[in-house]
Design a protein around this nucleic acid. Sequence first.
DNA 1: TTGAAAGCGCTAACAA
DNA 2: TTGTTAGCGCTTTCAA
Lengths: 328, 328
Amino acid sequence: MAVTIRDVARASGVHVSTVSRTFSAPHLVSADTRERVLAIAGELGYRPNRAARALTTGRTHNLGLIVSDIANPFFPPLIKAAQAYAREREYHVFVADTDEDPQAEEELIQTLAKQVDGVVLVAPRLTNQAIERLGMELPFVVVNRKVKGLSAVLMDVAQGAAQAVQHLASLGHRRLALLGGPRGSWTSEQMRKSAEAAVAGHGIDLTAIGPNAPTEEGGQAAARAVQGSGATAVLAYNDLVAIGVIEGLGELGVEVPGDVSVVGVDDTVAGRLNRPKLTTIVMPTPAAGRTAVDLLLQAVDAGGGRTAAQTILETGIVVRESTGPAPA
Amino acid sequence: MAVTIRDVARASGVHVSTVSRTFSAPHLVSADTRERVLAIAGELGYRPNRAARALTTGRTHNLGLIVSDIANPFFPPLIKAAQAYAREREYHVFVADTDEDPQAEEELIQTLAKQVDGVVLVAPRLTNQAIERLGMELPFVVVNRKVKGLSAVLMDVAQGAAQAVQHLASLGHRRLALLGGPRGSWTSEQMRKSAEAAVAGHGIDLTAIGPNAPTEEGGQAAARAVQGSGATAVLAYNDLVAIGVIEGLGELGVEVPGDVSVVGVDDTVAGRLNRPKLTTIVMPTPAAGRTAVDLLLQAVDAGGGRTAAQTILETGIVVRESTGPAPA
DNA sequence: TTGAAAGCGCTAACAA
DNA sequence: TTGTTAGCGCTTTCAA
């Protein structure tokens, strides 16, 4: 078996508790012993067993990160950042994919619960009610969702959407189609509200189309509806949908940005690589990953002390090639 | 605190060991007691604490998955599949990103070691020697690398590369540039060997350029070298590099596929969305993720019994828009 | 079929 | 500053 605290104790002629202390409370150990123990531990290749430690301390030093679809390009930068930041704080992270299935999400939380100190839920598919209930038993941070009593990281799409409308208005567009996301999406709802408000000031006509699947296919399927609406500009739920609608429009002989301008959301690689390059609302995904972990660790450190904190992250718009002047 | 085996025991009037058995060896418990215990456990919301279980059994039911860059579109499908498959087998998976840093990789393995039953190493940056050493202490499966004594999942890029050369040859190309990947990449090495062999039969001239960073930037930076080589066709280390070199070539006024044809590797979303759509070697990433977990669990179940197994996954080539006839 | 008891690797009072 | 001891939640002999 692996080398344990006991082996180190024996080899360095001290009691196990002393070894334990040199690792978890070094200041309680004399410099002499500390060095000796550390040296021997090094030789032996001793590494504390975190699981065993968890048993006594109640802290696993593990986190859970639950997303709906790892392969959706929105998530990887968030996962990467969360995981890197967690590691800095000496936490490991379980990453789990629910495949958009609320039940899988709940099951996952349950089985993960005992092994983690907290969970980050990104754009959960569970109802608020279910999350609140689970939140009683374990610290949670939700990303892009508001749940009573829980810390949240919110990306301010409303702001980005307003900027997008402004941008389109200045290009002379007067008819805008909004391609919503899946039912129950907080982000989609925010965009709709913000677009409605923004549109008013510019005398723009708004048509909401959806719900749509948050994928290329979803966008492609909506192309005909867009054409039917007579809109000269489209604000899509995300980059994938935007790319899909551009594709779909193309098949109908509608050119982007010649005939119709399209704005996406997320600023994924996919959008950058698309031709025309996508004008899109930039979502601060790496920052969201880091912030979520940060808030989660705060909640963990606070114990049960309800410390629901909200962080709102700014979004921006990056203008590329998929938007242009409204046709005359 | 959470409900433990003891609470269930008390509530159902049996000893803890009986409760333990109903969960981990149900056949050793009478149907009567089993049902009662299960019912009470259900009411109380009891879930076995896997970490505590691990302490006695030596099995954590956790796996580690270590990749060099989560945000590289090659990885998400693999991670997704590995994680889903592991879950079917009742394993959770830690996902960790090394940022291409061998030292981070080793450190990660060390700290993860006690918490997992095994680790999948995808395209590791560590030396074989280092991996072999670590392999003594923990079951490993490597993806796209051969390490003595360890199970491996290999994607047969050699085959794909040969097909790519064949494809380019049939289009009349006679000067090929090979954009290698990072130093120490098994995949890159395989491609080189295979291309060298394939090229001979077709009277093609091969220039190897690299090492290159496995990113768009890497490809972009290599554009000038490609131009300098006089090649009319490029086989790039992966889709990202291919996309980057197309971009870089574009800036130099070289058109793809008009002046130069480019083939990528991986078949990522990025490549599909790129314009021109990328001709690329299809890597079986989801299958690789599943297979790796499968082999790993086999190794775990075998205990120390060396069961190094190799699975070779086929690759193919999908021809899209980035390749065309050699210019006259 | 069930209970009793020891112990997995570690931490945390409490004493010395 | 260090050692003693109990115990975290669970499994696993061994006995009954």
